[in-house]
């Protein structure tokens, strides 16, 4: 029988059980990395931050109270890591601005990553909070409530950001399709 997150966490807290923690990493790495990849738009940086997220989670695991889901707790650490990294790396914002400025008609998407590039371009057109809320809900599958806890925004605001962001993304993809 596969142990639950709670059981694995208890094993880590009780005996600093690295195998139990590795199981948690294996279980949640995809969600955490997915969020960071869509926020950073740089796979190498996202993986570095994801590793840092799990190291911090391991060292502070006793601070996890079990109030929300463990995935949401990890996403909150990941989001904090992203914010800290973004402060250090103003270049990311410059890159975002450049990508926003590029007209999509001239975009030649690579054959193997076209959809991913399109998604990242579309996400770049959203406002910062809209993008974060959409990414948290769609990339890691968090509920609106979890996303509100991760970002510290009120639940209603998160819902508005997600709905507005989704509408903008829909319009972006429709424009792209019409232009093709």
């Amino acid at each position: 029988m596969t142990p639950s997150d709670g059981e694995l966490i208890a094993m880590v807290i009780a005996g600093r059980d690295q195998r139990a923690f590795s199981s948690l990493v294996a279980r949640h790495q995809s969600a955490v990395r997915a969020v960071l990849m869509r926020l950073c738009r740089n796979a190498a940086l996202a993986d570095d931050l994801a590793q840092e997220t799990f190291i911090k989670a391991y060292n502070k695991i006793s601070a996890y109270t079990g109030a929300g889901s463990f995935k949401a707790w990890l996403c909150r650490i990941a989001y904090t890591e992203f914010l800290m990294s973004a402060r250090k790396r103003k270049a990311i914002d410059k890159t975002m601005e450049k990508l926003k400025a590029q007209p999509m008609e001239t975009h030649q998407a690579p054959a193997d990553g076209g959809a991913r590039v399109d998604l990242d371009r579309a996400l770049a057109t959203l406002g910062e909070e809209e993008r974060v809320c959409v990414v948290l809900c769609y990339a890691s599958g968090l509920s609106h409530s979890d996303a509100a806890e991760v970002t510290g925004l009120p639940l209603g605001t998160v819902k508005s950001h997600v709905n507005r962001g989704k509408a903008k993304l829909k319009a972006w993809f429709e424009r792209k399709e019409a232009a093709a």
Binding site: V25, Q29, S30, M37, D47, A50, A115
Partner: peptide, 14 residues
């Protein structure tokens, strides 16, 4: 988002 996500299992990352 699912297509753009990393693989569900990645032993190298772990």
């Amino acid at each position: 988002f699912a297509d753009a996500a990393p693989p569900a299992e990645d032993p190298v990352f772990v």
